[in-house]
Design a protein around this nucleic acid. Structure first.
Length: 407
DNA sequence: AACCTCACG
DNA sequence: ACGTACGTGAGGTTC
């Protein structure tokens, strides 16, 4: 019996080819950016030490916690980590930002040093002299859900959410005379949830091409879709994510910054408005309780051995795993099947275009300009049809002279 | 090596 | 009373 599914066996040579291909990095621009970040970091550091009235190692959460909570005493009862240190993570610091100017500067310092050490300074060292390109390694036997992972370097967590981070994404560039193509699945996990659950409301929203977060907002807040505010949509987006992750009132209240009772009401509204989803989640957990595993559409199993645990915390965690794994795993199956069929096409056509990266719901190609018109529709179609579904599967593509522009 | 933090989907 | 959203990898500090 193989430890790999058929899909994994078939995608293996595709991954080998992607690793071999590698991607170009604009090292000179990153070196300029490193200098610039270094200066900003230096300035922040000086300001922080002045405001603290002492110098310390800003990179040490332990020392930082002592400065903020023992020396400056910013709060009465600071949160602690499980080993008894003060917590100084982004969530805690954001909550303290109005207490003291220093906190904002620490957050800025944290953000910039993260970018500099993990990406700007680290990535150029990963360029292979022989090819002048970055070659990641994709692992297929790491995750519990069937996703790939990427190491040495990890190219699945390149920044995109902040302006400063996006500068790093700009450094990923095509070969001379080529363009980068990024094709990604739109809201794939929610579509899979709609498919697996068969929930009528969720299905109709996708079939009618509605904005899914707005549709959910209208339902959970009992308003007309036209009257959904940005705040309502933003909250509904968190609810939708929460559903995929195995929502709890506590978890949702944390993320929305609202009392648990309100979060509970939102969840109850969701359940009442999407009864098919609720039934699906219940039956998934029942299946797991009986079989001690759950599975994806393609039959990939995740064993959930804690599903009948006595300890409620452990059991709840297992239930979240049972809910999330078939959804995340089906999305992983889908994109792997697409990769197999796209690589086959590329080889048969002997294109200059090459598949470079996979980032869970996205494929990145080094695209030959004269092949774009022919290949983009074919790539999109292979992604859409990898696992046939009743729910429409939407793929969005973009091209550009770097990875950021391709989005 | 464990811990904390934070980058991504 | 307690305390968590799912899945990863990497850098820096501390022990």
């Amino acid at each position: 019996m193989s430890v790999y599914t058929d899909i994994e066996a078939a995608v293996m040579p595709v991954l080998a080819q992607m690793e071999y291909n590698g991607i170009n990095l604009d090292v000179p621009n990153l070196e300029v950016y490193s200098e610039k970040l270094g200066e900003k970091i230096q300035a922040l550091e000086t300001g922080i030490y002045t405001k603290a009235g002492m110098e310390f190692n800003l990179n040490s959460p332990k020392q930082l916690g002592e400065v903020l909570f023992d020396l400056l005493q910013l709060v009465e009862k600071p949160k602690k980590t499980k080993t008894g240190q003060y917590k100084t993570n982004e969530e805690v610091l954001s909550g303290l930002a109005h207490e003291h100017e220093i906190v904002r500067e620490i957050l800025d310092y944290r953000g910039l040093t993260k970018l500099k050490s993990t990406y700007v300074d680290a990535l150029p060292k990963e360029v292979l002299p022989a090819t002048g390109r970055i070659h990641t390694t994709f692992s297929q036997a790491i995750t519990t859900t069937g996703r790939l992972s990427s190491v040495n370097p990890n190219l699945q967590n390149i920044p995109i959410r902040t302006e400063e981070g996006r500068e790093i994404r700009r450094a990923f560039i095509p070969r001379e005379g080529f363009t980068l193509l990024a094709s990604d699945y739109s809201q794939i996990e929610l579509r899979i949830m709609a498919e697996l659950s068969g929930d009528q409301g969720l299905r109709e929203a996708f079939i009618h091409g509605e904005d899914i977060h707005t549709a959910t907002a209208a339902r959970v807040f009992s308003v007309d879709k036209a009257d959904v505010t940005r705040e309502m949509r933003s909250k509904a987006k968190m609810v939708n994510f929460g559903i995929i992750y195995g929502i709890s009132a506590f978890g949702l209240s944390q993320r929305l910054g609202i009392p648990r009772k309100e979060a509970q009401e939102i969840i109850e509204q969701y359940r009442a408005n999407y009864p098919g989803v609720q039934d699906y989640l219940d039956s998934t957990i029942e299946f797991a309780q009986k079989n001690e595993y759950v599975q994806t559409i393609a039959g990939r199993r995740r064993y959930i051995r804690d599903i009948n645990a006595k300890n409620q915390m452990v059991r709840s965690g297992a239930e979240r795993n049972a809910i999330n794994a078939p959804i995340q795993g089906t999305a992983a199956d889908m994109i792997k099947i697409a990769m197999i069929s796209i690589q086959k096409m590329i080889e048969e056509k002997q294109t200059k275009t090459k598949l470079l990266l996979q980032v869970h719901d996205e494929l990145v190609f080094d695209l030959a300009l004269d092949e774009a018109d022919e290949l983009i529709p074919l790539i999109e179609e292979k992604m859409r049809s990898a696992i046939p579904m009743e729910i429409p599967i939407i793929v969005e593509s973009g091209t550009g002279s770097n990875w950021l522009e391709a989005h």
